[in-house]
Write a protein that binds this DNA or RNA. Structure first.
Lengths: 200, 200
DNA sequence: TATAATAGAACACAAGTAGAACCAATAGGG
DNA sequence: CCCTATTGGTTCTACTTGTGTTCTATTATA
């Protein structure tokens, strides 16, 4: 199913993605043709059929303006991967769980949710039991709050400060001290983009 | 049921939305026809029927001016009433605004959303800029965090402690002191049930 | 030489339109 | 209160147009 796309197919797919962000309705084959510099919608149709086979486009059974991209995941739910507590690996949840997340609290990039254990970020307003939304990334800017893996085993949620020689992870709890590591000890898993808490 | 609209149907729906904001009564089919450049209300009726099937318009059983939009109000959005800062009235937002709220952060009872201004609840992990979800209620149990109106004018977000003789409102900020009132000065607007924060 | 890409024609079906005739609701006059 | 006229929604059928589908043949590309 997921065989690799030819160059032209990739090009068409990219165009569809852009069009999708910009317009309410998918384009017609004729519109696509002129946008891509083709003069035969028959040829285009064949290409699109390939995208359908690849699982990237909904099969359009005679519908007009039916070139719809397969919608990527539910737009309002994210997977809850487990618990995060300073100094322990992320504790996975037994069965796969998901949670509703408002679009305001996430980004367009892939995100996941963790539940916080412990008080290491209490002064940033992140409490025990809160859910945090994390954008999956392997780099961060200084000052961002990241989920980082130390020595490949211990996961932690901290504010990051990177210098050429070392990485410092700052807890937001005056009872705890910043932790210093060499850059190759720390692997960034993602960056905090949202947080939510329930009081009942 | 919720299949996607054709281009014409979308156009009609958009027009209805705009008309809805502007006028008291829905338009007649004839009015719609001339507005949309149609000359047959029969055709229009067919389109509208499609909108009814899609669940966007109330079925209009022979009623006059019966093209009523279905009250949208997904069960996942709540109205944002304004800002709350200790010691000032709730500052209303100009135009009616709504926000997506996961069911986990709300209750089944009527709720609304406020945005927090200031640091009076910082030690409870509620920061400047956070959105809070409040269940509409006029009573609270001791220890709950409430939106309360003081002397009918000043709204505030505080943890409540009620005794027979007085009401104490505790801020969660050691720089501020608890406030004491007589019970008839304080009217409870709602109880905090959820909170969310965006980091971007 | 095989695979990808293209053009073009012929076709089929969905979307949109018009118009007429038919009902249902309301308002006004006896 | 009933009768009737008028307004406005409902239901058809027929037609036009837009747009996806299929095919066959030809040209690039690797």
């Amino acid at each position: 199913m997921n065989r690799s796309l030819t160059r032209r197919q990739q090009e068409i797919y990219d165009f569809l993605s852009r069009h999708n962000d910009e317009f309410e309705h998918p384009p017609t084959l004729d519109e696509l043709c002129s946008a891509l510099g083709l003069s035969s919608k028959g040829s285009l149709h064949k290409q699109i059929q390939a995208l359908v086979d690849a699982g990237l486009v909904e099969p359009m059974n005679n519908q007009r303006r039916g070139v719809r991209l397969v919608r990527e995941e539910d737009d309002s739910t994210l997977p809850v991967l487990g618990y995060i507590a300073a100094g322990k690996p992320i504790e996975a949840i037994e069965q796969r769980e998901t949670i509703q997340v408002p679009s305001l609290l996430r980004t367009n990039k892939p995100c996941f949710v963790l539940q916080v254990r412990g008080d290491s970020m209490i002064e940033e307003g992140i409490l025990d039991g809160d859910h945090i939304i994390v954008e999956q990334r392997d780099q961060a800017r200084n000052g961002e709050i990241v989920v980082a893996l130390i020595d490949g085993s211990d996961a932690t949620l901290k504010r990051i400060e990177q210098t050429p020689g070392e990485v410092i992870l700052h807890p937001a709890n005056s009872a705890m001290s910043p932790l210093h590591f060499s850059p190759d000890q720390v692997s960034i898993q993602g960056v905090l983009v949202g947080q939510m808490r329930s009081y009942h």
